[in-house]
Design a protein around this nucleic acid. Sequence first.
DNA 1: GTGAAAGCGCTAACAC
DNA 2: GTGTTAGCGCTTTCAC
Lengths: 371, 371
Amino acid sequence: MAGKPTVYDVAAHAGVSIATVSRVLTRPEDVRASTQERVLAAVRELRYVPSGSARGLASRRTGVLGLFLPGVDAVEDLSDPAIDADRPVEVRLDPARPGQRLGADLYFEAVLRGCELEAWRQGFSLMISVGRGRSPESLEIALSDLAGKVDGLAVIAQSAPHDVLKRIGDSIPVVYLAGQRSGDDFDHITVRNREGMRALTEHLIDAHGIRDPMYLTGPFDSPDDAERYGGFAEALEGRGINPTALPVLHGEFSRERARAVAADLIAGGRLPRALVCANDQMALGVLDALGAAGLRVPDDVIVTGFDGIDDGTRSTPRLTTVRQPMLELGRAAVRAMVARLNAPDLAPANAELPVTVLLRESCEGPLPPLP
Amino acid sequence: MAGKPTVYDVAAHAGVSIATVSRVLTRPEDVRASTQERVLAAVRELRYVPSGSARGLASRRTGVLGLFLPGVDAVEDLSDPAIDADRPVEVRLDPARPGQRLGADLYFEAVLRGCELEAWRQGFSLMISVGRGRSPESLEIALSDLAGKVDGLAVIAQSAPHDVLKRIGDSIPVVYLAGQRSGDDFDHITVRNREGMRALTEHLIDAHGIRDPMYLTGPFDSPDDAERYGGFAEALEGRGINPTALPVLHGEFSRERARAVAADLIAGGRLPRALVCANDQMALGVLDALGAAGLRVPDDVIVTGFDGIDDGTRSTPRLTTVRQPMLELGRAAVRAMVARLNAPDLAPANAELPVTVLLRESCEGPLPPLP
DNA sequence: GTGAAAGCGCTAACAC
DNA sequence: GTGTTAGCGCTTTCAC
């Protein structure tokens, strides 16, 4: 018995058949307690670890779910330059670099955590893969490779081309996260971007009398942002304000860009009473610029974000925002995959997760802190 | 040909043998170009996705590496309470909750990114699993399950009991990250905790004349922290200062706890000239407390951290720290696994990654920002 | 409750 | 360069 032990070794050791070993490991209740113990003892003694591949092949399910994330930009360049040095410690001054691109804020970290959590609960393992700046071909290979190893695949919007996903989709269930349906049969899970931004904007109008909020958008191709802007516009229209008359600025979802944009606004004296940002990062950038200029939030300008990232509770003032349930997004993705595995013929499902508008000091002014 | 297509289907469709199909997909250079095209065409047409399980079983390598992370605490309780509500949007005031435990800062996110990056480069997929607050048994099951599905396993220190790991270790290569060797044969990858803290402390003594720094420790059972404190003590001894005469405080690696501890210090008038914290989170907590008390950093007190998290560059003042190459840790883990797979009989390896002491405003005072 | 036997879909020798 | 043939280590009927 050189090499790893197999069911045969365990069976021989315990004096049973391989079928019984298999039963003990998968449906113990079908086996007499005494036999069970003998087998388990053999398993321990031989340090037997069942082969996932053999199991997957025989049972036609791998017990693994896949998560495909969009390319975290430029992560390749983050390698520490000091790493090649021979000395174990380098000491150096590290002056501030204003435009510095920090390690990509893994916006989807919470989704990943949600997936892992729910996968664990459902008895699945989780495999992850990142789109990165790959060529279309290598992206296709990566996806198809992943697809061959999992029972279901969750894909975050815009991380992979639709045609490739469709091909994979008739091999295993695909769940599409946070993106619009576009002629596919996948299960979709999205977040109430539109309703969230509408509610927030309505609050600004109704409670704070804002009639000319300025909107700070993200990238042009973000469907999330499109929905958010839609909600913003709807709120205005609903209150008799023409949204097309209001200027819109572009911040590319970047804190740095937003800071610069806001600084320009301040310099030009074109600051509105309220700046509605399509995400928190940009809102924080706006706060940076406003703070640097000595302006007061919300007294001089109201600032709001979207997403509900932690940093928004550590800024001064804390950021009013719309929180997305990112963890829930991951959990819902796994649930959807499992549901689909159990019922492959159901019609494609759509789930839209609720959001929460969190009113904090950046629009409300001082709030009494909770104990 | 109902159900998923297999090699046989593709072979028949292309008019070749299954061996040739396999070759085209694994070693195309062994196949005539014209045959290749025929096969590839059949693959596309049938939407063939090779079964990872069958491949793994036949070739005895899964092409998957595993990463086992420590339990991200209480992630289970983070579920958004609003999620059960029927309405798509909830609007509510969100006052500050001082003691609030925010979403666990996934300290190991960068390790994960490094693993994914390097795994991709090396042609492997990555499977992740989290220790969470599992019972010892279920932890063992989870690990052994994972072990059956991967070619190698990277484990972050203290996420799993040593005996379980040893069992797994003679089934597949195990790489142990950021922990001390303790009678195991794993490859180990650590970071120069000791040297980093020693260099930082020496700088405080030599450049700033600090003779009585106070140390803020993490949990008792953290080997990382033990090393760091060791470096701190060495630096002092090397300069003729007796470290045991200096008080040590306990902050549990928590920002909140550190804030409270520092507040006590301030209230009691026992503030030293320098507070050396075992991690950045605690150093940030100290900055919080100092800021609230109107004290100036570094004029009144010098504060230093350890880790090099992004938030340390966004605090006021920015935090002097020792940066750990977390991304590199992940990359090194994957490289170690791959190396071990290619040479199983090599002696257990030890790699210690260099760190960088980053001197910033929290000890140096104003630095001219880089353009 | 347990065993015998037939695959699951691929890769890897080995022939040709 | 390509085909034939054995397995890889399990799960799963189907008997008993």
